[in-house]
Each structure stands twice: as C-alpha cells, then as structure tokens.
C-alpha cells in the first residue's frame, strides 16, 4: 500500500496495489472524491462533479 498527498487537503491518502487509472478514491480526511490520473507513480486530482447524464 502506498500513500500520496490529497490534492484537496494535503493529508496522506492510502492507495491499494490494484489501483486503476480512472478509479475514484475518497480522501479519508477531507472526504473529497479524487480521480486516479496515473498509477505509476500515483497521481490524484479532484474528481469531476456529478453530471446530469451520468448513470447506467
């Protein structure tokens, strides 16, 4: 398990080894939804807000 800095609050965010680009991670400290932009090395950005046409 690796740790990276939350781009929203700066706290450490723990990442599992099977991380996928495009996955969403919740920051355990500030609750921000973070999108995995890259996995090697891990890069997180604040995830896009919910759009009206999202779903199944």
């Amino acid at each position: 398990m690796t740790e990276v800095e939350c781009p929203e609050c700066g706290a450490d965010v723990s990442l599992y080894d099977d991380l996928e680009t495009g996955e969403i991670i919740d920051c355990g400290t500030c609750g921000a939804e973070l999108e995995v932009i890259d996995v090697n090395p891990p890069v997180l950005e604040r995830a896009p807000e919910l759009e009206e046409d999202w779903g199944e």
Partner: peptide, 27 residues
C-alpha cells in the same frame, strides 16, 4: 470505453486479465 472506473469496471477488468485477454482502456 470509459470515463470512470467504477467497481463494476474493476471487476470486469480483473476477470478479463485473469483469463489472459488483452485489454485496452480507452478514456
């Protein structure tokens, strides 16, 4: 073809890779 990897896509990716299929993720 995706714009977000939900748990559903992660399960699908895992099954495809476990069976030895080639997978190209297309954002």
């Amino acid at each position: 073809l995706y714009s977000r990897i939900r748990r559903d896509e992660k399960l699908l990716l895992s099954e495809l890779r476990d069976r030895g299929h080639d997978v190209t993720k297309i954002d």
